[in-house]
């Protein structure tokens, strides 16, 4: 557990950090909470020449509400998200997902931006961001761009971020009335990552019909994804046990499912269905004003 040698920078503000990123690009790694990067370095699976510790950049911390959106700084810890009154009131799904990450120590150090940028195929936030239709803001010295969550995750540990960009914040639309969301997760018992994680968001409309629905899936494939066919099966319909069961049965349709010693592809598909149904049931109940 001894890393290879590296050069360490601790920029105090974003501009300084961006200049370093621009200069060292491919040979540099950004250090936020360090809960993915440091273990990889200690196992010498990753040996970056430069480590740029962005932890001191105050501006990237914290949650605020702005124009009907929650704006979450990239360095906001999982614990801050989980325990934020604002997040709990406006977006319970996100607080639920944060609360399911790792353990207390991990949640006290790990950050939203770090987790999203790392894009572990079994991380919790990606599913939540997809279901919430969040935007992920990437900043370079040339300016900022907002990447829709649906486009952000490209492949295993691969995102739309360029080497000269820093993930600075996440913008999450605040749900209106008659909306509800939930995150349900089956833990991989050793790592605590999701064997299957399902984020579901539902808005009910006229006649208790599902007006809009989004389902984010993690742990199942090489990267987090939206379960589009399941969403289509639900849209505009009145939810009932039969409909939810059928729709949940489609969440892995057309997906190249992961399989490993913790769960075969077949098992993951089976529990993905179960957890999707459970997440949808909870989201619908919440949309209808019930606690779940």
């Amino acid at each position: 557990m001894i890393p290879a040698a590296f050069e360490y920078f601790a920029p105090k503000n974003l501009d300084e950090a961006l200049r370093l990123v621009e200069r060292h690009g491919d040979e540099a790694k950004l250090l936020a909470g360090g809960h993915s990067l440091l273990p990889l370095m200690k196992l010498r699976l990753s040996a970056p020449r430069y480590v740029i510790d962005i932890g001191r950049i105050r501006a990237l911390h914290g949650v605020r509400e702005e124009d009907g959106r929650l704006v979450i700084g990239a360095l906001t810890t999982h614990h801050d998200v989980e325990s934020s009154e604002l997040v709990r009131q406006r977006c319970l799904l996100l607080a639920e997902a944060a609360a399911e990450i790792g353990d207390v120590q991990v949640r006290n150090r790990g950050t939203v931006g770090g987790s999203l940028a790392h894009a572990d195929p079994a991380a919790d936030y990606p599913a939540a961001m997809l279901a919430l239709e969040a935007e992920i803001v990437a900043t370079s010295s040339g300016g900022s761009r907002a990447i829709p969550a649906g486009e952000f995750f490209v492949d295993l540990l691969t995102t739309q971020l360029r080497p000269d960009e820093i993930l600075t914040e996440v913008r999450v639309p605040v749900a209106g009335r008659r909306s509800g969301g939930a995150y349900r997760k089956l833990h991989q018992p050793a790592s605590g990552f999701a064997l299957v994680g399902v984020a579901a968001r539902v808005r009910l409309g006229e006649g208790e019909k599902i007006e809009s629905v989004a389902i984010g899936m993690t742990g199942v494939a090489a990267h987090a994804y939206r379960a589009a066919t399941a969403e289509q099966a639900l849209a505009g319909k009145k939810p009932g046990a039969k409909l939810l069961g059928e729709a949940a049965g489609r969440v892995t349709e057309g997906v190249d499912t992961l399989g490993d010693m913790h769960g075969s592809a077949g098992y993951r598909r089976a529990v993905a269905t179960v957890y999707a149904r459970r997440a949808l049931e909870a989201a619908i109940a919440r949309a209808g004003g019930k606690t779940a």
């Binding site: 353990d103 991989q188 018992p189 050793a190 790592s191 010693m261 913790h262």
Partner: peptide
């Protein structure tokens, strides 16, 4: 199963 991320212990 030779790492603690793969070898599960009870919590």
């Amino acid at each position: 199963s030779g790492e603690l991320t793969d070898y599960a212990l009870p919590h």
